[in-house]
């Protein structure tokens, strides 16, 4: 019983430490050089617990979604995806992979379907990340 209590305390402690590291990182981020002109950096956090679209839709259409993102970000500067439930996401491969953070997330399915996406010719593949 006592051991359990101890471990729970430890858990809280570690959680608090993790939280403070995150906060510290956040502060450090804002500490980097900024444009002297407005607008100043106001980087808002994403909520990656939500999905940008239902699983079934993404399974069939993720390539169209990614291609649409690529086009609107690069060509029009439209960088924010607004999901049907109103939550906002940065249009970035990193947004997808920040949540689907299994290294083999892309690879498993693509290798099964024998699809060779060209994304990783330039973008860093999750297979190669440190």
């Amino acid at each position: 019983m006592e051991v359990m209590m101890k471990s729970r305390k430890l858990l809280w402690l570690v959680t608090f430490a993790a939280f403070s590291i995150v906060v510290a990182l956040y502060v450090f981020r804002n500490g980097e050089a900024e444009l002297s002109q407005k607008p100043l950096a106001r980087v808002s956090a994403i909520d990656s617990t939500k999905c940008i679209a239902p699983k079934e839709f993404m399974r069939a259409n993720h390539m169209q979604v990614l291609q649409g993102w690529e086009r609107s970000v690069v060509r029009e500067g439209d960088r924010v995806h607004i999901a049907s439930n109103g939550s906002r996401f940065q249009k970035s491969l990193g947004t997808c992979l920040g949540c689907h953070n299994n290294r083999l997330f892309c690879y498993n399915c693509h290798s099964y379907a024998n699809v060779k996406p060209k994304c990783w010719n330039c973008h860093l593949s999750p297979m190669e990340t440190p």
């Binding site: 995150v22 990182l25 956040y26 981020r29 607008p39 100043l40 950096a41 106001r42 980087v43 808002s44 956090a45 994403i46 909520d47 990656s48 617990t49 960088r79 924010v80 906002r88 996401f89 940065q90 970035s92 491969l93 990193g94 947004t95 992979l97 920040g98 949540c99 953070n101 290294r103 973008h123 860093l124 999750p126 990340t129 440190p130």
Partner: peptide
Amino acid sequence: AASGLVPAFSLEKTALPV
């Protein structure tokens, strides 16, 4: 991951742009 600061592996940063 929730704050977008430390993804499980560090890729391009995922935070809404300015």
